[in-house]
């Protein structure tokens, strides 16, 4: 895998190479170079299978990380391509022309993270959530427990921490 990274580095600006296992590595690429890189990997390096496309919200550094995971059926190796997006303006090029199922992933990311993929068919349509009016739910600043407690009717809990309860009961003055 290291060899592949070296080879790719000649053409693309790569960083943060991590080899998790001998057959799995992750690498970060510049946003503009993603589609050429994926095309290159698919057509030349036989990374023909798009395993998944997902996003990680790094709220602390105000970034989204998109991970494109590709698999090579001949060498049985995977490479994860990371792309960092600005969290305030998350727009990414679509790759649905490379893999058909990518449009579904992109549609989901658009709905769940609010990442836009202009040109991806049907990306604007709500997919899973119907009539959702809040912020994109998978963003880390959306607190699902709070939302749930506010929106739905919960049975009021009646629990006590042993430590606090014993203090109240056994030595309230101390």
């Amino acid at each position: 895998m290291k060899q592949l990274d070296t080879e790719l580095s000649k053409q693309f600006t790569l960083s943060d190479y991590v080899e998790q296992r001998p057959e799995l590595a992750f690498v970060t690429v510049e946003k503009q170079q993603l589609v050429p890189l994926l095309t290159y990997l698919r057509d030349t390096k036989k990374y023909t299978h798009l395993v998944t496309l997902t996003a990680v919200d790094w709220l602390e550094v105000n970034q989204f990380q998109l991970t494109y995971l590709l698999h090579n059926y001949e060498t049985h190796t995977d490479i994860g391509i990371r792309v960092k997006l600005d969290r305030d303006n998350p727009v990414m090029e679509t790759i649905h022309h490379l893999w058909e199922q990518a449009r579904v992933y992109q549609r989901e990311l658009h709905e769940m993270f609010g990442i836009d993929f202009p040109g991806s068919p049907g990306v604007e349509e709500p997919m899973i959530l119907e009539g959702w009016q809040g912020p994109p739910v998978m963003r880390r600043d959306f607190d699902t427990a709070k939302y749930s407690l506010e929106t739905y009717d919960h049975r009021k809990r009646d629990t006590r921490e042993p430590e606090i309860y014993m203090k109240e009961k056994l030595y309230p003055e101390d």
């Binding site: 991590v18 998790q20 296992r21 799995l24 992750f26 395993v51 991970t67 995971l69 995977d78 994860g80």
Partner: peptide
């Protein structure tokens, strides 16, 4: 769990 990322299948 130590920081990092992985994919298992």
């Amino acid at each position: 769990v130590p920081a990092g990322e992985t994919y298992v299948r």
